[in-house]
Amino acid sequence: MSALSAERLSVAFGGVRAVDGVSFDVAAGIVFSIIGPNGAGKTTLFNLISGLCRSHDGGVWLCGEDVTALAPEDLARRGLSRTFQNLQIFSHLTVIENVMVGRHRHEATGILADLLHLPAVARQNRGTRKAAAEALGRVGLGDAAERSASGLAYGHLKRLEIARALASEPKVLLLDEPAAGCNPVETREIEAIIRGIVADGVTVVLVEHDMRLVMNVSDRIHVLANGRTLAEGTAVEIRTNAAVIEAYLGVRGAREAAGAVG
């Protein structure tokens, strides 16, 4: 069964067809990448999948369940999580508190217990903090736990978002340009993080411009241009696809992408 299916997703903003009839199937446990030029509709596609934006047509299935009309919070409770290209950090919170919020769907105290700080809340807080610390460790931010989130560098904030999403223990994780603004070393680290996530059985949908990273980690690649599907296939198929080279990779990009494996 596929972990995530999108069918004929479409949305227009004031006449611009940001996403136009896009369909794909993501098998469970793989890295599925979505690439394409800026403005191709990748982020909008994530917004459609995660319920932040409504499709005019078609639908979305999560692990076989129709989740088309669900609100983002309901999708989260069913095991979908994501990060944002333009960071959405809780900047008044500490680093670890950001990740603790990611545990929200696993927390089960009532408002009265919270107001009175009943022992259940203390226990809950401890469990949540432990899980959050683990998630931070996985992205290499364990040492920054008690710092204010607003004080972190850009690259670390990107990882913080990954840790926060991981803390919710998703089945499907959408990563929107996790390596943007990262230097080559950091990009390698992001690659290792993604591999670790997949190794735990999480299905990853990746939007990314760094072609070395994409070609290295992806099991399948879906190419968008002007809101439409241009091609889909394995890394080899995509970097040798003439239409993709013309619309996005360019000759140099294709060579770079080919170098990724070597």
Binding site: P72, A76, F84, I89, F90, H92, E97, V101, D114, V121
Partner: peptide, 19 residues
Amino acid sequence: SPTGRALRAIHDSEVAARV
């Protein structure tokens, strides 16, 4: 508490909180 963290999260980013 969990509720308090959720409230403070809403303050900074409703979108991230919902997701």
